[in-house]
Design a protein around this nucleic acid. Sequence first.
DNA 1: CTGAAAGCGCTAACAT
DNA 2: ATGTTAGCGCTTTCAG
Lengths: 348, 348
Amino acid sequence: MTKQRKHPTLREVAKRAGVGTTTVSRVVNGVEHVEPWTMARVERAIKELGYLPNHAARVLKGYKTRTIGLVVPSIADPFFSSCAEVLQGIARQHGFLLIVLTTHNEREMERDAVNTLIQHRVDGFVIAPADAENDELRSLLMRVTVPVVALDRPVAGAVAPSVVADNFVGAEHATHHLIAHGYKRIACLTGEIELYTIRERARGYQAAMAAAGLEAVLHTTICDYASCEKAIAKMLKGPDRVEAIFTLKNSVTVDAFEALQRMGVRIPEKVALIGYDDFQLAGTVRPAITVVQQPIEELGKTAAELLFRHLKGSSAPVIPGEARAKQQVLLKTSLIPRASCGCRPDPS
Amino acid sequence: MTKQRKHPTLREVAKRAGVGTTTVSRVVNGVEHVEPWTMARVERAIKELGYLPNHAARVLKGYKTRTIGLVVPSIADPFFSSCAEVLQGIARQHGFLLIVLTTHNEREMERDAVNTLIQHRVDGFVIAPADAENDELRSLLMRVTVPVVALDRPVAGAVAPSVVADNFVGAEHATHHLIAHGYKRIACLTGEIELYTIRERARGYQAAMAAAGLEAVLHTTICDYASCEKAIAKMLKGPDRVEAIFTLKNSVTVDAFEALQRMGVRIPEKVALIGYDDFQLAGTVRPAITVVQQPIEELGKTAAELLFRHLKGSSAPVIPGEARAKQQVLLKTSLIPRASCGCRPDPS
DNA sequence: CTGAAAGCGCTAACAT
DNA sequence: ATGTTAGCGCTTTCAG
């Protein structure tokens, strides 16, 4: 019952079919100039041996690897996993494989990830850089000779085209919305302020507040439920009582909602709430939470399409670094008005 | 400003360092017997050229690819993306890469995925089979000479070791819990009954009902909010009014909750609810939803560890198919009692 | 301690 | 229409 221990090679197929290796290669690659009869025998041999071409050998011969990479902070994060899903789908359509690497927003892991991808000779990759101002990453990317697309966060110096959501305008818009409701004291809660996206959102909030002549109240150190509850509890007492809260990331939105609920603070009557980023039950909880929704699928799709456009276009010699198209795509977010901002009286 | 267009080769490094290719290879692979001075020069050349070994060439020489695959229905699904995250992390610890392939539970895509992985000569892979009874997959897996681990769903015939949660007992337990609360008419709602996991859960529900001498009311065609609401509306009227609902998958749980809420049916007073699978806001909504929680991280971790144990162990010739260890790991689920089952009076 | 050379499996001239 | 052959970049005996 001994099965073949090794993968059959093209030569073995050739021998079995009684033909030369070239012929087998032709059949495998669907090239013409093969007698139907020969072809049949070769195909039979292939089937019998369960032959599958050795990818490494093909790559060594100069073939593309037909593999792309995705470098993201985390794949468990719904945002990035959705992007990954889209990217994987499009890659598959093109007959490409997807290698996923996570960085947890650490520069070192990011560098390793990119190097690994280069070493594996991927044909291109998509990356959500931990830090836009990372010089090491920039120069690394500069030397890369395959297409690279930045996702969700740009790379400074236009080293690669990028596809990002308009965090600034999204946050500005949400803040505006709160202001239009008549709230004056609007606080903004977040953590991970070191991230590009969060910083942009914070800037948007501040800009909207400044434009309305309102004082910005920005807490950037909310890292868990406890810190969130504490911050909110403090904001709710005293003469400067906050009337509305704008949370800049999903986890903080949920924590804030939970805290408000536990403290028995009615939303939006006592405090209004808007969160950045939509999530599964945002419309189901009571009150339903108003959020800024990001075009997640579209981000992934656009990045993928951009990548493959460069991939297909660059059968001509690839241009590295600065000469690359400096395409920067900025995608619109949308405000999903639900109940928590005060837009509608809580529905039945 | 012309950058090198191609990747530098080992030979180029050798030439530049004025040594033979063997020496460079030794330095790259950290083998001894290299004069410090020679080593220094080689390392300098490597740095200057930005040399990274060509993975394909190494593989062709018989190296392992140090790559593993993951074949799952969807990577956007929180369950599988969490598994993917864990797997990726463990792979990285071992210096391995992760290739992700999605099947959408379609046999054809699954077959293609496995073939692709074989072709890429991955060192092993984890797969969540669309269908345990798929003969084609079974024979395909039989011929595979690298370690394979089934995740979340087993493969019939013990063709590969598997790591799955105990869906049957989990559902049985939840149903028991409802019965213990005194409910008699307990309905079970789900879709995708063709999936192994769902079928097991349905069996668990039926077993528990039968054991209690209760009549099972099983709806297996809930596919969206509308069908869910309709089914619930019907169950709520008439003399056979349902007292409790057990939903077998996340989306149905959420839909059921939403429907009950919209219809103004109080939970758990009018109808109790337990859902299979925990989710982000299950504890935050009011009433908080009682759920069967799966050990997601542990599933991923166990599968990964199993895979790498086989990977490391099998430096000895690999045994294909039936001879492989028929390890079947069954992981416990846990019931998270919250308010929706009637366990606690709604907390403040 | 170091280098020359063989060959992994495949494709693509170049014969025939 | 089909076979022969030379490498792709690397590791690895085997000699020096």
